[in-house]
Amino acid sequence: MSIIPKDGRILITGASSGIGEAYAIKLAGRGHKLSLLARRKDRLEALAQRLRSDFSADAETIVADLEDAVHLGRLEERLTRDDFSGVINNAGAGGLGFLADSSTQSVERTVTLNIVALTRLSRAALIAFKRKNAGLLVNIGSVLAHAPSPGGAIYSGSKAFVLNFTRSLQMEFAETDVSIQLVMPGPVRTEFFSSQGMDGSVFPAAAYLSADELVEAALAGLENRELVTVPSLPDLQSWERLETIRREFLAATMSGKVADRYGAGDPALE
């Protein structure tokens, strides 16, 4: 039995291209009812028409800008009220560039889309899912959550939030029938770089997955009950070792004393 509920609509944000479009095509092919959200009406309508034609899909379009507080509020209200069975928080912004050279607008856009909108839509969805003890939340993170880098402070920082936020939610809902998946892509061939005037050569060409490959792997991970899916990671033990070290680090910080390297054990400082 599939873990993806069939009894309600699945909302996909950022559905007009890339990863969101790939989710829409694959879920429509599996017979799911979809609500496709994006800012670009023409591309959104074209995708919905394609899904109706190819799969006889029930695909509605929601033209909205998640940076707009009014649009975001309306969507929150609908998620808590209407019969949605799933939410895929895919919409986001790149925000690459050195912080001191970035505009206030670009910084705010990345934080609003990657953190504020994702958080508020997750909350609205989980209010409804908790009420009926069923539902699916998928948050799209990034392996760059583990990669602080020059020019990536805002993006990497925002995805670190998505990582810890989603993992914490999984713990909150561990004893329920609500499913929460974190997808951690590496480089993906989408409009991510071109939309920022970049050619994508920051990563080797061989490092890229297509959006279709990414989503196919993410859905397979979901069916395998993975809490965290890293489609381009060949050896799952790498993730397991990272988690083990993280837990050991946290345990070690509970020593209740200042470490010797800060002078606590040096008689000359007493």
Rank of each mutant, 00 (worst) to 15 (best):
Q181N: 00
W239M: 13
L250E: 11
L233W: 04
A22P: 04
R189E: 15
A117D: 06
P150T: 01
G200A: 14
L242P: 05
Y262G: 14
L118F: 01
E175W: 03
F129M: 03
A220T: 07
E172H: 03
A264Y: 08
E76P: 10
R78G: 03
M254F: 08
L144N: 05
K159Y: 02
L99A: 09
N89A: 11
R246D: 15
G31E: 05
T244S: 15
L236W: 13
Q196S: 11
A134E: 12
A48G: 05
V138L: 08
V70L: 14
S168N: 14
F193H: 10
F249S: 13
R189Y: 13
G263L: 07
E67N: 15
R247M: 12
G29D: 06
G18E: 08
A93E: 04
L222K: 00
S16F: 09
D199N: 12
L182V: 09
G263T: 02
Y155E: 01
F98I: 07
L99Y: 10
G29W: 06
P231T: 03
A252K: 12
V63R: 09
T104G: 12
S35H: 07
D7F: 01
E76G: 10
E226Y: 00
V228G: 05
V202K: 02
N133K: 02
T190Q: 11
F173D: 04
I3P: 02
D83T: 10
A100C: 11
L144P: 00
S158W: 00
I140D: 02
E172T: 00
E226A: 01
I25K: 07
S16V: 05
I4P: 00
M198H: 08
R52F: 11
Q181F: 00
A174V: 09
D65Y: 04
V202H: 03
R78W: 11
A217Y: 08
L79M: 14
D58K: 12
G18V: 09
R50T: 10
R246A: 14
T229N: 00
G186T: 08
P187F: 02
S156W: 01
D65C: 02
Y208Q: 11
F165G: 02
A128Q: 10
W239S: 15
L233F: 06
L72Y: 08
E172V: 03
D266G: 08
T13C: 10
A174K: 12
S142Q: 08
S195F: 10
R225V: 00
G135A: 06
V202Y: 05
I25A: 07
S194T: 15
L227E: 07
D58T: 15
L79G: 06
D266Y: 11
T176V: 06
R39G: 09
L27A: 06
G92Q: 01
S238P: 05
P231N: 05
A207F: 14
M184R: 02
A217W: 04
D65T: 09
L137C: 04
L126F: 10
E243G: 10
S210Q: 08
G221E: 00
S53P: 06
V116W: 03
P231F: 03
S255W: 07
I140L: 11
